[in-house]
Structures are given as structure tokens and as C-alpha cells.
Nucleic acid binder design. Sequence first.
DNA 1: ACCTGAACACCGTTCAAGT
DNA 2: ACCTGAACACCGTTCAAGT
Lengths: 241, 241
Amino acid sequence: MSTRNPFEAPPVRSRRGGRVKEPLSRDAIVAAALDLLKRDGLEGMSLRKVAAALDTGPATLYAYVEDHKALQALVLDRALSEVVTGGRAQPDWRGRLMALLESYFTVLTRTRGLAPLAMNAAPVGPNALRILEAILELFDEAGMERATAAWGVDLVLLYVTAIATEVSARQGTPYPLAPMAQALGRVSAASHPMVQAHRELLLSGDGPDRFAWAVEVLLNGILETPSDSPRPAQKKAARRR
Amino acid sequence: MSTRNPFEAPPVRSRRGGRVKEPLSRDAIVAAALDLLKRDGLEGMSLRKVAAALDTGPATLYAYVEDHKALQALVLDRALSEVVTGGRAQPDWRGRLMALLESYFTVLTRTRGLAPLAMNAAPVGPNALRILEAILELFDEAGMERATAAWGVDLVLLYVTAIATEVSARQGTPYPLAPMAQALGRVSAASHPMVQAHRELLLSGDGPDRFAWAVEVLLNGILETPSDSPRPAQKKAARRR
DNA sequence: ACCTGAACACCGTTCAAGT
DNA sequence: ACCTGAACACCGTTCAAGT
């Protein structure tokens, strides 16, 4: 890869789809980094590997990108371009919001190493803003107050990002919940009766139902808890008893 | 520190509070690592630095600890020993749960670098189990169904861990929400009217009210959304319109 | 058999020397 | 003036050589 036979024709013609030593640019760097992230996960996206993929040294990238963290933020937002915000399939705002959050969740979990990146970088790129705008629109359609909507969008995005981080971390390991199962197995009924009683339920996987349930929880909770009353009445607490 | 004057007395007497070259052990390693984490944050807790603090080489630690990730998990659980689960100050389960989650949140945010550690490691240590048990107890007191409680405890802990990670990441930077403020300032009203309209609200800081609000949202939502009905009726959706 | 110095294969970032 | 090879100051992990 690094040694080139001098008798070979210079690689001018494009191998299909591949860039042909295109001039270095911020965008080309971000694109290469995202390719590496998709292929090899977070550690495939090191500054040195990105530089190597572009046939240059690591120092060169600093002419186009502040530092590694900034590159991560750029890669994240580029990846978020795949999130679908304009869905009109569902008639109600809840359905549309669920579809949007599922799209966000899917993008984060499908690309190995993307979710932790979203957990570490502030969502300030153009695609993050597009997602923000879409959710606020749906919250407005739901008749939510502005203050509640502002805090709510943060809450919802943070939660989905967090669960995506957890799920994508588990995707690496062969038996994801083995450590938890072991820990729960060792628990004594005397010291941890509740954990014992909930053992199987705590281990029940994270299928789509669970994601949908969690989102419903957030939406129901947000609708019921206006942000101006820090300690709302506990009217509902006893209801389900 | 590494060069020692051969004429000085060997460091046998304890400098107050300090360990005196106590024999290496898993526990001593974890304690030293937590000390370093508290002092210098996540990067202060590198395997090499922990080894150096114990006057040994990095290879030695592998006799006591699986690898760096396992050490992180041990350090996390040791730090979680400070979380107060037995509070009886509040008469109601909500108040006690709020106090417990605040304690967890405080422990995670007070120690620099601890929160991301909690985000990466599965909560399977003895202190994590103690917290799990306490929350399940309170959920039971609230009359929650078991399946709902099992999913709910996961939801609540994950959210609090996530927000602690975000807050503690911001604690490092001098002007935490400057990037967000800038991004929101550049947004055009034409393309992002909702973001524009919520601008100041989106930037309103993360004080204790906001944390309390978020927890109330989760609790209200969980109480209202039994886990057996993946798509509960939207009875409440229009109420606040 | 146990412990560990030294080596291995990496990092992100800087900067002086080249064009 | 711009670009970048080489160096700097680190990583986590392994393993052969010592006790």
C-alpha cells in the first residue's frame, strides 16, 4: 500500500467508487474517517489511521481539523445525515416522533463506535440541529409548553443516545449479558430479596418493545410534568397500587 | 520520587494517612487507582500511572487485575460505596428515591472522570447491586408491577448516569455551553424556526431543578406506562393542549 | 513458580527543517 | 508560507529472562 511499483501507471483512473488521490480537504478527511469508523469501529478512526488511509502523515491533518475531538464531532454529524426527520407515514405526532427516534437509534447502533461518539460530543452540527428542529416541531404539535419542550428534547435525545451507547457496547461482546447474569446469580436472597425476585426480568433483553416502552415512558412523563413546577403534586403515585 | 537518597531512613513509618509500601494486593491497586482518578481524572488512572504510584512496573498489575477495563469496573464500584441508599429522611417513596438518585448523581459528578466510567461498565459490583436493590424496594413500595419495575430501574439509572456524564464532561471546559450557544446563534429563523423560538430555553443551565424535573418525568412516565402494553392508549396526549 | 524489565505496537500532538 | 518527517510523551499488553 505504501510502496508503489514505479512502473505501474500512476493511479489516475478511478477504481469504481474510490477517490483517486483527490486533493486533501476537510471533507475528504471526514469522509475517510467515517469509512474507517464504519469498517473498524472507534479505534479504526485514529488520527494516524485516517492519515494513512489518505496516504499522508498524521501531522498533515492538523491543517484541516482542530484536533481529534473536533474530527469526531464532524464525523458524528456526517453520520447523522442518515437520520430521517421528515417521515409522514404516521398520522399522529407520537408515531412520527417514535419513527424519528428509532431512526436516530438505528443510525447510532448500526455503525460500530458511533454511539459513544455521540455521547461525548455536543450535538451542534447541522444534522443535530435538523433533528432538534424536527422534535421541537412534533412537541409543538403535541401542544407542549415551550419550556417543557426545550427540556424535553434534551431529555429524550440524551436517553436515546445513552441506550444506543449501551446497546452498541454490548454488540461487541459474544455473550453480552453474561456478567450481569452471573452477578444476579450470585446474589443472596437474604441480602437482596428484590433483586432476586426481579432476576429474570432484569435480564430480559433489549428488543424493540423495550425501546418503544422507554420512549412512551419519556413522552407520557413529559406530558404530565410541566417544567415550571419543580415538584408536581404526587397525585398519581397511589393510583396504580 | 523515584530516586531515593540511600542515606535517608527507609520509609517505614507512615506519613500520616499514607500507606507504607504495603504489600501489593488487588484492593491496594483499586484504592490507588481511585485516588489518582479523584486527583487527576480519567487519564490520571492509566495502568502505568497506577503502577508508578505503587512503585512498580505496569506488568505487575496484571497479576491482580484482568486488564484495564476490569480495573475501571472495580474502581467504579468502590466509588459507588459513597452512594447513600438507606435514607429515611423523606416519608414518601418519591422523596427517598429522589434523594437516592441525587446521591448517585452527586457521587458521579463530584469525582472527575467517574461518570464516563459508569457509562462504560456494566453495573454488576456489590455497590451497584445495593443501589439496584434499594430502587426496586422503593418501586415496590410505590405499588409498581414487577416487569415495569425491572425495566424502570434500568431506565432511571441509565438516564442519571448519562446526564452525569454530560455534566461532568462540561465541568472540564471553561465556557461549557459556548459551542451550543454559538450554534444556536448561527441558526436561521427560516430553516429552524422552532430551534430559534426555543433558543434561550435550550441554553438554560442544568441546575438542580432540571435534574429534579427529569426524575419526576421518568417516575410519572413509568407509573403511567405499564411494560406489558407496548403501545399504551394515547389518552393523555391531547389533555394538555 | 512467580514476578517484572524491556519490548511491542500503538496513540495524539508538536515543531523544526525542508520545499 | 505552507506542508510534513521525525520526535515527544505517552498508552495497554505481552513475554522472555531473571529470581
